[in-house]
Amino acid sequence: MRRTLAWLLFLLVAPVWATPGPDRLIQVGQTSAPPPLDPGDPAWTSAPAATVRLYPQITAPGGPGGSVLMLEARVLRSGGRLAIRLAWPDAGEDVADARATHRFADAAAVEFAPAGDTLPYVGMGEPGRPVQVWLWRAGQPPERLSAQGFGSLAGQAGAPPEAQARRSATGWTLVLRGKTDAPVPAAIAFAAWDGAEDGRAGRKRLSAWQALAGPGGTIPAALREEARLGGDPARGERLYTERGCVACHAPSAGLGPDLAQAGGIHWPGYLRRSIREPAAFRVPGYTSIMPKLGLQRLEIEDLAAYLMTRGQ
């Protein structure tokens, strides 16, 4: 309840605001000039705002994930440079302080999926499918990083992004600007950490991959299969029960990742793949490996459709 209030309050005082865009699709604004670094630059109004939900990380050690539930994202592109403005509520300002080694800074990150028609695991990518990350921590220089799976985050050669953050009484507005590996990333995801809650590493909240809208404002062709949703959620739910999935995929069970918010954090493509080939990518921090369930193609569609209803 408190968090909802914080969000509402933030909405009221946020400097610039617009109606949320279509889910998982961010319209990229174009400017002729270099995209602005200043979060208050009027050019930002030319980029539609997307409201993005954030979810706790389900890898271990994940923890409660923090209080940042949503952020507003705008993306501007010009001359090969990308600028992303994120705004999110955060009641207290936590800036890196060399005199407070027990405290953590507020932080936010943008994750870029590699080009291709299959999105990597949203939590730090997968071996062989590296993600690029721009990380900003309050009071510290922004970093350009890459990762191929949980715990593999490492510095990446090349100029780090520029950052400019602005603090209001209720939250942060941050612009990250730089060049990405792929000139036009297929998808991006966001994360936010609240220093007051000891946010760092997995103690964060993370969005699902957001496709950057192609020409015509639609999901890029390469990602259409990833986004396709064809099954029957009701049948899927029955299957979920019959197959006893909950025995492992519940927070109390702890044997597999909790799927209560699977639909919020994942894309249908990922869910289909995970059901079909559970061993292909294992969410870090869980010791048992899910067996192959031997489901029919349609059954997999149904299960995926059901899971996509969870946590949306």
Binding site: A98, R200, A201
Partner: peptide
């Protein structure tokens, strides 16, 4: 080179002999 200063180790060490270099 791997450490990113998350400080889980600092908390986990019961002797508190790990230090975070700010």
């Amino acid at each position: 080179e791997r450490c990113r200063g998350y400080r889980y180790c600092v908390a986990a060490c019961p002797y508190k002999k790990i230090y975070f270099n700010p």
